[in-house]
Amino acid sequence: MYLKILSLTAVITVMVLGVAEARDQIRIVGSSTVFPFSTTVAEQFGKTTKFKTPIVESTGSGGGMKLFCAGVGQDHPDITNSSRRIKKSEFKKCTKAGIGITEVKIGFDGIVLGNSKKGPNLKLTRKQVFQALAAKVPVDGKIVENPYKKWNEINANLPNTKIEVLGPPPTSGTRDAFVEIAMEGGAKMFPSLKALRKSNKKQFKSVAHAIREDGAFIEAGENDNLIVQKLESNPAAVGIFGFSFLDQNADKMKGAYINGVAPEFENIAGGKYPVSRSLFFYVKQQHVGVIPGIKEFVKEFTSENAWGTEGYLVDKGLIPLPKKARQEMMVGARGMKTLVMK
């Protein structure tokens, strides 16, 4: 009796495993920052067309590229999202695998230094951000271990509170972008480091990209919601997170001015706010026409109804491209223009 049941279940399992069918659903992987936008379009696309709703995985920009460039065929994803531009090494890998890529820039994302409404108003420059967070900073012409413990030690106008910054871990695209734009940008403000950049780029990067590890910067995990919650209970701390989280929590959080510019929608869209990055997705051209619906999905994503200034993605926190850039991008994307990198 038991043996019969056992053998029966084993047979059923084998039968189940044997089934595999051709894919009729778009598969998307990549950045967790683009995830909310990609999923919104996917849902809308599934509702309004005869195609199935695409599957969107949140793997991170790097992880997505790895899957995307692995090859052509229905086991590999059709589209990858990225919160940074494709790297040359990734492009080479893709080309080697015989993949033609269409690049679509979808908009901007601002990275915000924010704190609780109960905390002090912060007006920072990129230089001060670097001074507060770098592992090594120049003091009187020499590069030394970061000596600053309080904000007002950097500049007397800043509040008399301990430097305590919660931010994402190195695996996060937000962290990459923050380091590249805010930290490196701040480091360049020092004449000594600027000179170093010209003479020894590698050494400059090792200084500009190293975040301090003496407790002033706390890695708070990939989850931006968690950072917002921690900031709420600790008004003295400052956090690094995406603009959409500031937008959704405007009653609890405020963003620090960077170089005199507030992290607001118009400022980021207009390119005035310095710490912002572009968001992309990449389409595998070999899959267009093979997996149904890719062209229509790209069309939906690049429609004014989605990524325009009054589109539904703006409600989700996307900061749209300027009108002209949108127009150009739309033509390129719908025509499946091939990305060329030298």
Binding site: E43, E57, S58
Partner: peptide, 15 residues
Amino acid sequence: MVAFIVDIPKSFTDP
């Protein structure tokens, strides 16, 4: 399996 999936799976091979 950490993915955004709208459709309710109907078989063992559906996402």
